[in-house]
């Protein structure tokens, strides 16, 4: 099997440059960078897979809408309920709409949406592409002269990048409605007064940074899910691993991105 190579040569070749773990990490980083670069190359070169991208947008939105509605509403309502006692001590419950809207718009809406989408959509993308890889469906696309990267990866990453900001806006709205319900029950505030208070403290920078975060989160969820699924191997075990890694890595990256964007926005403010 090792024709032409002495055992010493093989040992030399097997020796890690740094440590095996660090070597693997750099190899993976190189691989991921190539994957991202390929995405941008393919995304901006014709033909554009418009129909499939729209179909994927629908899938991403449809898959997460129910859970996002429920979670967003409960988050808004519970956050208001938990914040009330602290403000009541200072007789400042009228600040509730503005406090809640700042929390929801700046942090909760994009974050909650992204975490739910990572679990729901990211795992689905990882498992779907992983199973396509191990059952040779991706190879079948390639031999029928279709670019599987463009058809499967580019469309899904674009779909999550476009759809998650829209879902985040929706989560924000639903969250504020949940909050309004609690405020209305206690203070009998009207909807117009509530939203007037809520938007009083929201700046353009808040909305813009929230949108940027949601776009980043969407891109991350799509990219991680596709990378894990597209490069899946080792049969059904590999599919499970791809789905799991798609969620765990995406969530980890989402928190890192959140931290970085918050620092940048704080510096700009």
């Amino acid at each position: 099997m090792n024709a032409g190579k002495s055992p010493v040569d093989n040992e030399e070749a097997d020796k890690p440059v740094l440590t095996r773990r660090l070597d693997n990490m750099f190899f993976t980083l190189y691989d991921v960078s190539n994957f991202v670069v390929r995405f941008f190359k393919e995304a901006f070169s014709p033909p554009i897979e418009f129909k499939e991208t729209v179909r994927q947008c629908y899938q991403v939105g449809y898959r997460s809408l129910g859970l996002i509605t429920l979670t967003g509403f409960i988050t808004g309502m519970v956050f208001t309920k938990q914040s009330r006692p602290s403000l009541e001590d200072f007789g400042a419950t009228s600040w509730l709409p503005s406090l809640i809207s700042i929390a929801i718009v700046r942090a909760l809406a994009p974050l909650v949406t992204a975490l739910i989408a990572a679990g729901k959509v990211g795992s689905n993308i990882g498992a779907e592409l992983g199973s396509m890889r191990v059952t040779e469906q991706i190879d079948a696309m390639e031999v029928s002269a279709t670019n599987p990267f463009k058809f499967l990866v580019v469309t899904r990453v674009l779909a999550t990048t476009f759809t998650i900001p829209i879902l985040a806006m929706y989560t924000g709205f639903v969250g504020l409605m949940g909050s309004y319900l609690n405020v209305h029950q206690n203070e009998e505030t009207s909807l117009a007064t509530f939203f007037e208070g809520a938007f009083e403290s929201i700046s353009f920078l808040d909305l813009f940074s929230s949108l940027i975060k949601a776009i980043l989160f969407g891109f991350t969820i799509g990219m991680v899910g596709c990378y894990q699924g597209y490069n899946s191997s080792k049969g059904t075990e590999g599919v499970g691993r791809a789905a799991n890694a798609a969620v765990v890595i995406a969530m980890f990256l989402i928190f890192i991105e959140e931290t970085i964007v918050v620092q940048i926005v704080a510096a700009l403010r």
Binding site: T135, E136, Q137, D139, A140, E142, V143, S144, A145
Partner: peptide
């Protein structure tokens, strides 16, 4: 891709698109 249009590949597990 042009050449591939002239080659048919029948996979071991058929590789039909599940969806």
């Amino acid at each position: 891709d042009k050449l591939r249009l002239k080659i048919g590949f029948s996979f071991q597990n058929s590789a039909l698109y599940d969806s």
